[in-house]
Simulated assay, not measured.
Amino acid sequence: MRSVTLRPRNDGADKPSATIASVISACERLLNKGESFTTLSIEQLAKEAGIARATFYLHFRNKGEIVRHLMAQVGREVRHAAKAKLANLDQFGRAEFLSFMEDAVDIQYRHRAAMRATVELSAYDPGVAEIYRSFVDEVVHDFRRIIVKLEAAGGAHPDVRPEVADILSWATERSCAQMLRDEDTPERRQQLAELLTHVVWSAIARPAWEPGGKAVIRS
């Protein structure tokens, strides 16, 4: 099994100011109402956020910068969930990973309109494409950290390779983007989390019982 090496990471932007947070929330509300990001005007955003148009430009150079803050917010929430659910190696197993995946699916569901807008814009805006790629790279980093923890505990799949984290990250993000719908129920989101856990955990973790009958990690 090839060892997984972690690269240094940038945890992204600091927590946004109250005004930036207000604009981000306003943008998501408008997107959730069915507005298209490409046709949203600065006037609409400022009005929804309860600020003056001039105030908007004190915090954003252009509308595209909102996307960077939106994706940074999603990234912070995912990293917080990973830290909360997967930090304790002594209690780290499939059940804890499922709990993390439930949170990750719920986060993507809450921000589904913003995620869709980002994917749409990334097709023709190189700057947004880089933001989107950076977001997925952070997910890759989180999956690699999980693999490293499993390796340290002797619980990593014997055939796991570093590139597995890349494939699983894109598969998870694309599955959420394609399978989450506005009308989804908590039960359906739970089902998606369970399916993703099955796919990811089967790829990165050693089976609960190896030949010889010794359990190497709780599942």
Rank of each mutant, 00 (worst) to 15 (best):
M1L: 02
R2A: 02
R7F: 06
N10T: 00
D14R: 09
D14W: 12
T19W: 04
T19K: 09
I20Y: 05
A21G: 02
S22E: 04
E28Y: 04
R29D: 13
L30A: 13
L31P: 12
F37K: 08
E43L: 13
E48T: 07
E65P: 03
R68M: 06
R68H: 06
E77I: 00
A84T: 15
K85G: 05
L86I: 07
D90T: 14
G93N: 04
A95N: 14
A95K: 10
E96I: 09
F97Y: 15
F100S: 04
F100W: 12
M101Q: 14
D106W: 04
R110P: 03
A114F: 13
Y124E: 07
V128Y: 00
E130Y: 06
F135W: 04
E138Y: 06
E138V: 09
V140G: 01
H141E: 10
R144A: 02
R145A: 14
E151L: 15
E151R: 15
V160S: 05
E163W: 04
A165I: 08
D166H: 12
L168G: 05
S175L: 05
Q178N: 03
R181W: 10
T185Y: 03
E187W: 03
R188G: 06
Q191E: 14
Q191F: 06
A193H: 01
H198P: 02
W201E: 01
A205S: 13
A205D: 02
R206Y: 03
W209N: 12
E210H: 11
E210K: 15
G213Y: 15
K214W: 05
K214F: 00
K214T: 07
I217G: 12
R218N: 14
R218S: 11
